[in-house]
Simulated scan of single mutants.
Amino acid sequence: MAQSPVPRAAPGSGRTRRILRAVAVVSCVPYLALKAARAGSGGVACWGGWLSPASVAGPADLADRPTQLRHRAYAGRMLVGLLVAAIGVHRFAERSAGAARRSA
């Protein structure tokens, strides 16, 4: 009883496989960058939203007041949070208008 020969891979198939794998990995980079940006901007927006009502109370002791650098960092976080919220509202409005046009 003769055994059938093991099929051999075509020459260069290992190289082709490596190239395809590299292309697949590189094509995922923009997607992963967008996911990281979304998570980071959401975190900044939530933190800025939390600090907004917390800043109304104010410190009990003058020594606990934040420095100028912390004020500027807080202002930057608030601006980024408001920008993220505005872009989100704009996107949802566009999506809603597009869905209304498709259904009509």
Rank of each mutant, 00 (worst) to 15 (best):
R18L: 13
P53F: 03
R38F: 13
V23T: 11
P5E: 10
T16G: 08
A63H: 08
L34A: 14
R95A: 11
G58K: 07
R65I: 04
V84D: 01
C46N: 05
A2E: 11
P7Q: 12
R38Y: 15
V44C: 02
G43Y: 11
G14V: 02
M78N: 04
G76D: 03
H90D: 09
G14D: 11
A10F: 08
G49I: 00
R77V: 06
I19C: 05
L82P: 00
A73K: 08
G42R: 02
A37C: 11
A33Y: 04
W50E: 04
G49K: 01
P66H: 03
L20R: 10
R65M: 13
F92T: 11
G40F: 09
C46P: 01
G48E: 00
M1Y: 06
H71V: 06
A36Q: 06
R101M: 07
R72S: 05
A24T: 10
A75K: 05
Q3R: 07
Y31C: 11
D64L: 13
S4I: 09
R18M: 10
S41W: 02
V44D: 00
A24L: 13
R65C: 14
V89N: 03
A104C: 12
M1K: 10
V23I: 15
L62A: 15
L51M: 09
V26K: 04
G40N: 06
L20G: 02
A37S: 12
R91D: 08
A75Q: 08
D61C: 15
A45G: 01
G81N: 00
C46I: 04
A93Q: 12
A104M: 07
L69F: 07
Y31L: 14
A33E: 08
G81S: 14
R15N: 08
Q3Y: 09
S41L: 15
R38L: 14
K35N: 02
V84R: 01
V29R: 02
G76P: 00
A60E: 15
R102P: 00
V80S: 01
V23R: 15
A104H: 08
M78H: 08
R91G: 03
P59E: 04
Q68V: 08
R21M: 09
G42H: 06
R72E: 11
A36T: 06
R18D: 00
A37P: 00
Y31P: 01
P11T: 06
A75W: 02
V89R: 05
V80K: 00
P59I: 05
P11L: 05
G48A: 15
P59K: 04
L20E: 10
S52D: 12
A33W: 05
